[in-house]
Computed example of a mutant assay.
Amino acid sequence: MEKNLNYEAAYSELTQIAQEIETEAVSVDVLAEKVKRASELIAFCQTKLRSTETEVNKIIKQMENQPL
């Protein structure tokens, strides 16, 4: 996975791949390659979402523990 890949770019690429597969714009010769890339992008996005959720929950807990 590229080092400077972000969620938006990964999601955009994943959407493009899905559209290509749905419209049968992908040849059989590159289908496996596209599916593999989609799998990598899905894993990246899931990891990013989990990480963000953890960070947000941590911030919320810190805010709840601060005196008013």
Rank of each mutant, 00 (worst) to 15 (best):
T47V: 01
L5R: 09
E22K: 14
E8M: 07
R37Q: 06
F44Q: 05
L41C: 03
R50M: 09
A18Y: 05
A9C: 07
S12L: 06
V26Q: 03
K34N: 07
E55N: 07
E20W: 05
K58W: 01
M1T: 12
M63W: 01
E40S: 09
V35K: 12
E8T: 10
Y11K: 15
E24D: 13
M63G: 00
L49R: 08
E22H: 11
Y11L: 15
S39P: 00
S12N: 14
P67A: 05
K58R: 11
L14N: 06
A10N: 09
I42K: 14
E20Y: 08
N65K: 09
E22F: 07
E2N: 14
V35R: 10
E24K: 15
M1R: 12
T15R: 14
E20D: 14
K48W: 06
I60E: 03
I60A: 03
V26F: 02
N57A: 03
V30W: 00
S27N: 11
Q66M: 13
K58H: 03
T23D: 03
K3H: 15
A43W: 06
A18W: 03
V30C: 01
Y7C: 09
L68D: 09
F44C: 08
K3C: 12
V30Q: 05
N65P: 00
I17E: 02
T52H: 05
N4F: 08
Y11G: 12
V56D: 01
L41P: 05
A9V: 15
I59D: 00
E20L: 13
Y7R: 13
F44T: 07
N6V: 06
E13A: 02
L68A: 12
K58S: 08
T54M: 10
N57Q: 09
S51Q: 15
S51P: 00
E55V: 04
I42T: 13
E53S: 10
A9W: 04
Y7F: 15
L49C: 01
K3E: 15
E40W: 05
E24P: 01
C45F: 00
K58G: 05
I60G: 01
V28C: 00
L14S: 10
E40M: 10
V56T: 10
Q62P: 00
L68R: 08
N4V: 10
K34V: 01
E64C: 00
A38R: 12
T15I: 08
E53F: 11
E8L: 10
E13C: 01
S27E: 07
R37T: 03
Q46T: 11
A10M: 06
L68S: 08
E40G: 04
